[in-house]
Amino acid sequence: MSEPGAIAVDQFLAHPPAKVWRALTDSDLLARWLMPNDFRPVPGHRFTFHTTPRPAQGFDGIVHCEVLELDAPHRLRWAWRGGRLDTVVTWSLVPEGRGTRLFLEHAGFDPDDPVQRRTFTLLDGGWRSHVWPRLSQALAGLA
């Protein structure tokens, strides 16, 4: 973790930045490895992700998002709001050899809020153990 209240993960992907960018910005591809969505790569576009509700954490299963920054194929930022969260997810792509170093930062968690601490722990583990392997699998299936 880079700072309190932020999840930071980086992963080398053996695919060129343009291919990784496509997996991050194509709604159908994004749904394959993250969640069903109505994403469009347009700054200011509001979209949602849909997942399993977690009533004990005040989460109805809908993540409300907005594209905050789009700098193809280098950086993508979106607001991530759901339940008691009001956070920001930033994806940064850096060419590395024949592949891409993909950095993820999910920031804005309140470390003093017990529900947000639990959500932080869940998402930190999920980004690392669930999302990265699914993204790698989706990339492997792309031409």
Results as ranks from 00 to 15, higher is better:
residue 81 R to L: 00
residue 114 P to T: 06
residue 32 R to S: 11
residue 28 D to Y: 01
residue 139 L to F: 09
residue 98 R to P: 10
residue 20 V to A: 03
residue 117 R to N: 11
residue 124 D to C: 05
residue 93 L to R: 06
residue 68 L to I: 15
residue 70 L to Y: 11
residue 27 S to T: 03
residue 64 H to G: 09
residue 123 L to A: 12
residue 63 V to A: 10
residue 88 V to N: 02
residue 33 W to S: 08
residue 104 L to R: 03
residue 126 G to F: 04
residue 52 T to V: 15
residue 73 P to Q: 12
residue 69 E to Y: 05
residue 43 P to K: 09
residue 50 H to M: 09
residue 63 V to D: 13
residue 120 F to Y: 15
residue 35 M to Q: 12
residue 53 P to G: 09
residue 121 T to Q: 12
residue 131 V to N: 11
residue 108 G to N: 03
residue 29 L to S: 05
residue 118 R to S: 12
residue 87 T to M: 02
residue 138 A to N: 08
residue 122 L to A: 13
residue 112 D to R: 11
residue 91 W to T: 01
residue 12 F to T: 00
residue 38 D to W: 04
residue 78 W to N: 05
residue 25 T to S: 13
residue 133 P to R: 12
residue 14 A to L: 04
residue 120 F to M: 00
residue 122 L to D: 13
residue 28 D to Q: 13
residue 112 D to G: 11
residue 64 H to W: 13
residue 105 E to Q: 10
residue 64 H to L: 12
residue 97 G to P: 06
residue 61 G to T: 14
residue 136 S to P: 00
residue 126 G to R: 06
residue 111 P to W: 07
residue 38 D to N: 15
residue 49 F to C: 13
residue 31 A to R: 09
residue 65 C to K: 03
residue 104 L to K: 03
residue 36 P to E: 11
residue 108 G to A: 02
residue 76 L to H: 05
residue 118 R to A: 15
residue 3 E to G: 09
residue 110 D to V: 04
residue 2 S to R: 13
